[in-house]
Design a protein around this nucleic acid. Structure first.
Lengths: 216, 216
DNA sequence: GCCCGATTTTTGTGATCACAAGTTCGTATG
DNA sequence: CATACGAACTTGTGATCACAAAAATCGGGC
């Protein structure tokens, strides 16, 4: 048999590629809230026709990553304060459960990996890079939650992240603090100690901490 | 001015109509798990071309109401037991919170409406009509949760219902009991008494009760 | 200088088509 | 009789087009 780099890579599927790239940009806060998009513009940017652009956009609209006006115009969501509070409450509910389910499976290698990621989070905060901060922060949480072996719950959590992406970008963009994330250290400490109540409290605090910045 | 039935009804939008009808059929358990669908078949059934059928299908796939094989074939999901447990846990998390938020706003008219709906649920159970049971049961829950004024949470809960639709149909389809739902009465009683802990327990019990039927 | 209205442009929607990949069914061969 | 091979069909994907509605732009009138 011939040696191929990828034994299976049947179809790079244009609409899926467009979807994934747009999804990352939105989740990581690359686009401000209310940023308008057009199907033809997406198609031109990713060198595809309108059809895959439409499918990617509609998929993102279905997940709440994009909003659609009644005339079909698509844009990143500009969330109300009530909506933000709701999404933060959903994060608290789902992610506390995910962390709780991950706790029994969290061995030492995972904890060390979380510490490495947390160092990158601290770097992003020190450099005031909002996109890097959001990306590494989500990587921290996802790495922990993957151990929960609960794909449906993780998908729900990621959907919430997706909806908050542009808003988080706008929030952290005008942020001026340089302290590393304090609650991440509490999460790691609770994981080490096998302290489930402490872990739940630390995750809940970390997830809802952004809410306090709304009052400013 | 002339009297028109609907002052505004600008565009019935084919793909949205197809989406909504398919969504109801799936959520109410009209289709068994693993039921295959084709874009051309959907288009023929709703008298539209492939394009709106594709958009409706892709939207439902994005919400987890339909699954897509790696070759693009679409079908209703056939859930594993692990996945069912996860979705039930999500229902418990989200719906307990929704009920808790609805409690302060639950006035007498709402409670009476819930009792009327519950009578219809009992009828459906007595007649062993799985689809009617699922529909009225969801109506009961949605009526309560609408009072929570938390649209994002309600949307998440409905997404979970959607994913469980076909499986619920298969489960209740082989159900042989004729007792009316006991936990619904506990929910109503807790609402009357303003008993939040009791309400949370009743909702959690009602939502996870279906899990016990999996052991049979 | 400002605002209102018509025209032009932009944009999403739905239909149709070519194409490639997957599936199914029939047949022939061991 | 079972299995493998191949042909015919089915199916999703992506591109292109016509069309209607919405938005933007420009012009004229006050």
């Amino acid at each position: 048999m011939t040696l191929t780099a990828r034994p299976i890579d049947p179809a790079p599927l244009a609409h899926d590629r467009v979807y994934r790239q747009l999804r990352l940009r939105i989740m990581h806060g690359d686009m401000p809230p209310g940023h308008a998009l057009t199907l033809r513009g997406i198609g031109a940017e990713y060198r595809v026709s309108m059809t895959p652009a439409r499918e990617a956009a509609r998929r993102l609209v279905a997940e709440g990553a994009l909003t659609m006006s009644n005339s079909g115009r698509i844009a990143t969501p500009a969330l109300s304060n009530d909506r933000i509070e709701e999404l933060a409450a959903l994060r608290a509910l789902i992610e506390v459960e995910l962390a709780s389910r991950a706790l029994p499976r969290a061995h030492l290698a995972l904890i060390e990996r979380l510490q490495n990621i947390n160092a990158k989070v601290a770097d992003a905060v020190a450099q005031r890079d909002a996109v890097s901060y959001i990306r590494t922060n989500l990587e921290f949480h996802r790495t922990l939650y993957l151990r929960a072996q609960a794909p449906a719950m993780l998908a729900m959590a990621e959907t919430v992240w997706l909806q908050m992406g542009p808003t988080m970008s706008a929030l952290y963009g005008r942020l001026r603090r340089t302290e590393p994330p304090q609650f991440h250290r509490l999460i790691i400490a609770a994981l080490r100690a096998g302290d489930e109540p402490g872990l739940r409290l630390a995750v809940r605090s970390d997830v809802t901490q952004g809410l306090r910045m709304l009052a400013s």
